[in-house]
């Protein structure tokens, strides 16, 4: 499976993401720069990593979401290619209108950088099938604007459709997110956005490997 990592000024988790995709998928992803207008042929998974694109100016992810590469990503997503956005990548996907809702300033107003517990709510998606429903994962978070918001109608729809893939496990919601939402997928099931960083918990050197399952699912390399 061929993957691609998007690079934009201010994104700084791209190297961690490249390492995770390489170690778990067995070969390095291609990288695409923000001004490119095409995603290389044959790419099955596009990843927008975390960071602080455009200094978080205007709103987190707002400027990045209007860069040329996003039109190409939208077109590929419509054609069924998988897209994963982590942290700032999630914010960018929301700003691009590819996922429902919005991410607001953390309720505490503080940047949070710590390990939380994630509950796998939907284990039937292309990104979570290596896990079991209800499984609790360790996962780091590091963000200032991760407070998920959606209006009542949208919330009822995404909850009803099983579009909430990950929730902060009870007592670990770090940012005030409605319904403890940590990760949301689109209706079609091929675009996932999440605030926690699974790429930072993939091997013993990280102190754990709970994040591997997400990449194994998305890269189609789940061990038998």
């Amino acid at each position: 499976m061929k993957s691609a990592v998007v690079q934009l000024p201010g994104l700084n988790r791209d190297r961690d993401m490249i390492a995770a995709l390489t170690k778990i998928g067995g070969k390095p992803p291609v990288t695409v720069w923000q001004t490119e207008t095409e995603i290389p042929a044959g790419v099955d998974l596009i990843v927008i990593p975390g960071g602080f694109s455009y200094g978080d100016y205007l709103r987190c992810g707002a400027i990045a979401a209007r860069m040329p590469i996003m039109q190409a990503i939208k077109a590929r997503a419509e054609a069924g290619v998988k897209v994963l956005g982590v942290c700032n990548g999630f914010q960018i996907l929301l700003e691009a209108g590819m996922l429902p809702g919005a991410l607001m300033r953390n309720a505490s107003l503080k940047f949070v950088c710590k390990e939380i517990r994630l509950e796998v709510v939907n284990a039937e998606t292309a990104f979570s099938r290596a896990y079991a429903k209800g499984q609790i994962l360790r996962c780091p978070v590091a963000h200032h604007d991760g407070n998920y918001f959606a209006d009542a109608e949208t919330m009822a729809r995404i909850e009803g459709n099983g579009q909430v893939v990950f929730r902060y496990a009870e007592g670990t919601n770090p940012n005030g997110s409605m319904n403890d939402i940590a990760g949301v997928i689109n209706e079609k099931g091929n675009v996932l956005g999440m605030m926690p960083h699974p790429e930072n918990l993939i091997e013993a050197a990280h102190g754990g490997a709970d994040g591997r399952g997400l990449f194994a699912s998305a890269l189609d390399v789940i061990a038998a």
Partner: peptide, 10 residues
């Protein structure tokens, strides 16, 4: 209206 504003609150 209805959107939580943590900064406004602070």
């Amino acid at each position: 209206n209805g959107v939580l504003d943590p900064q406004g609150k602070a």
